[in-house]
Computed example of a mutant assay.
Amino acid sequence: MSEITPDLVRHLGVLARIELSDEEVQRLTGELDAIVDNIAKVSEVATPDVPATSHPIPLHNVFRPDVVGRMLTRDEVLQNAPDAADGRFRVTAILGEEQ
């Protein structure tokens, strides 16, 4: 039985604030239903004696020494900035008065 319905996809679109056409709703209904079915199949096979894994090959981090190097001066940092004032980057305001 299908768990994913067109109404559920439309509801998810509203929650995500995504406007979906009727074609997109139909396509996503099938795709999401296939995803849910595949997750259910994996859940059926998963057993407590099989350890969970996030990657098939063991990974390890490669670290480098944390050594302070030459740092840029303020003038070097600001030399390519499109606009600067008082030793700072100057940017256009993005928040309106309602914020």
Rank of each mutant, 00 (worst) to 15 (best):
A84H: 05
I18K: 15
D49R: 14
S43C: 03
F89Q: 08
L8N: 00
E98I: 10
V50Y: 13
N80Q: 13
L28Q: 13
E76P: 11
H60R: 14
N61G: 09
D22C: 10
R88E: 04
T29E: 05
E23P: 00
T53Q: 09
P82C: 05
V25F: 00
A93V: 10
R90G: 06
T73L: 01
G69P: 04
T53N: 02
V67Y: 00
P56Y: 07
D49K: 15
L72C: 09
A85P: 01
D22P: 03
P48M: 02
D83V: 12
G30L: 12
R17K: 14
S21H: 02
H11S: 15
E97F: 07
S21F: 00
V42P: 02
Q79N: 14
P6N: 02
I4T: 02
G69D: 00
V45E: 07
E19C: 14
L72D: 09
T53M: 11
S21D: 13
V62Q: 13
H11D: 15
I4N: 01
I39K: 11
E98N: 11
P51V: 10
E24D: 11
N80L: 11
R64Y: 12
A93S: 09
N61F: 01
V77E: 08
R10F: 04
I57L: 14
R90P: 02
Q26N: 14
I18R: 12
P56T: 07
L12W: 02
T53I: 06
L8Y: 05
D49N: 15
G30F: 05
R27W: 07
P51L: 13
R17I: 08
A46N: 15
V25T: 11
R17H: 15
P48D: 15
V68F: 00
S43Q: 07
T29P: 07
L95Y: 02
E23K: 12
L32W: 03
N61I: 08
